[in-house]
Amino acid sequence: MSQKKSFPWVRTIASWFCALLIFFPLLWLGLTAFKTEGQAIAAQLFFTPTLDSFVEVQKRSDYTHYAFNSLITSVVSTVLGLMIAAPAAYSMAFFRTKKTRDILMWMLSTKMMPAVGALVPVYVMAQTTGMLDSLPALIIVFTLSNLPIMVWMLYSAFKEVPNDILEAVRLDGANVWDEFRHAILPLTVGGIASTGLLCLVLAWNEAFWSLNLTSAHAGTLAALIAQYSSPEGLFWAKLSAASLLAIAPIIVFGWFSQKQLVQGLTFGAVK
């Protein structure tokens, strides 16, 4: 450890600069939401805060309706995804075959395709089954698009469970379900929670499919925001107010669960 830490203040300034760079749009969004449309366009830094935009957004569109849709789609798709991904990850982690690695890679590869590539077929399927602008359509799409990540995260979490413990449970008379419930679940609850949290956030923030498959009825908060970046003209203050309303719940949620999220994302990276 002879390496000297030179210019610690350079690092401090650099990290503050990066942090501000990332945070600035969010800050600007927050400020603009409390301005009038005139102040918003003038890009004023000093102004008297007003709630007019929020009132206007609530009057023009039903915030709770969209928020409810966002909540339902993200929660249900996450729960559904966990129920499908857990058995898949279980079999891959504990009953490995030569092809396990390939299957995992193949699953991940589906995430490398741009979503728009599948837009037409998915749209046509939704249309022919009469599921356009419906919550089930969004839930199915969210579940499927998050599955690869869920399987990967659960797989890394399950792999941390010592084999001896599973064998001990089996010798103690446990069937597969007992084994999962009494050994794997309690030992990987952190990993499962992180997986769930991440997918909840991803589903909440999802915009592409929400915008393309829904309109008024099943629209999520992403659709609400989009209403305010309309061709009739830009309404910066209202757009910001709507955006702030849309992201506020997930930011608060993310703040409280950030420890879990970070732990889940770095699972298996340490040690």
Partner: peptide, 27 residues
């Protein structure tokens, strides 16, 4: 294994880390 009615003591002990000693023994 679960149907053989055998008990095994492992080199690593393989105790259930999330259970108390009582729960381990009575599992």
């Amino acid at each position: 294994s679960s149907k053989r009615d055998l008990a095994m003591v492992f080199q690593s002990y393989a105790l259930y880390p999330h259970m108390t000693v009582f729960d381990n023994m009575s599992f």
